[in-house]
Design a protein around this nucleic acid. Sequence first.
DNA 1: CTGCTGTATTAATCGTCCTAGTACAGTCAG
DNA 2: CTGACTGTACTAGGACGATTAATACAGCAG
Lengths: 123, 123
Amino acid sequence: MILIDYSDRRPIYEQVAEKIAELIIRGVLPPESQLPSVRSLAMDLSINPNTIQRAYQELERKGYTCSVPGKGSFVSQRTEYLEEQRENILEEQRKLAEKAICLGIDPRLLKEAIDQCEGGEKA
Amino acid sequence: MILIDYSDRRPIYEQVAEKIAELIIRGVLPPESQLPSVRSLAMDLSINPNTIQRAYQELERKGYTCSVPGKGSFVSQRTEYLEEQRENILEEQRKLAEKAICLGIDPRLLKEAIDQCEGGEKA
DNA sequence: CTGCTGTATTAATCGTCCTAGTACAGTCAG
DNA sequence: CTGACTGTACTAGGACGATTAATACAGCAG
């Protein structure tokens, strides 16, 4: 379900939170569905429960999930995160385009790179 | 000349190296030109000379510069880094496009974001 | 020689990530 | 009610990397 990249500089809790957020956004984890418990996911990934808890805190803080003591953590029914995420991606795109232009790269090359992915998308 | 972003998670030496690399690529620092000395740049940025040295090491390792003991650090005459940098940008673009597609964002929106920058580029 | 340059080494500090252990409270099935 | 699960909170400590600090050495140029 989730793979941890230890060569990644970012902390584990951030990786876990991001992966789960992605699953939520892509609809793999539908609204109202229950996330694995802090302890079970920690077991699965062979890391400390505290690290998972921190990831879940991040997810709740960002509005992706809703944690209920005694019951579990659930994907939020609300879906503003979809629009938010879309805006994040577009912002990244603008920054990248700006950087490219700054470096004298023809923006058309960027668009070609996009087209390359449109066909051969994976997973 | 260079601003350090302390809120950035990446280490200072990496930020410095990247900024200088950008100046080189954009031609602000032409080939053969001399970089500020380790000590003077450290003074300017109010950081330790060792941190600058590390940044310069990175730059030399990547082929952007050439350091000569007793003389100084100079921008490399060679320019392969241009092509290399272009390829890096395109790779980032592919990853971003893949992520967008993964999240169900229409690639055309990415292209629109690029167009937005083409007109109003700054710096 | 004097003052600049890059380079190297070592030690110490500091902050963050992560682990470990423990504890408490809410929920729910039996 | 009991027990097993859930999330949550707290403290202590280890580990690691970034950064500072102080020093030293060697090359180059006026």
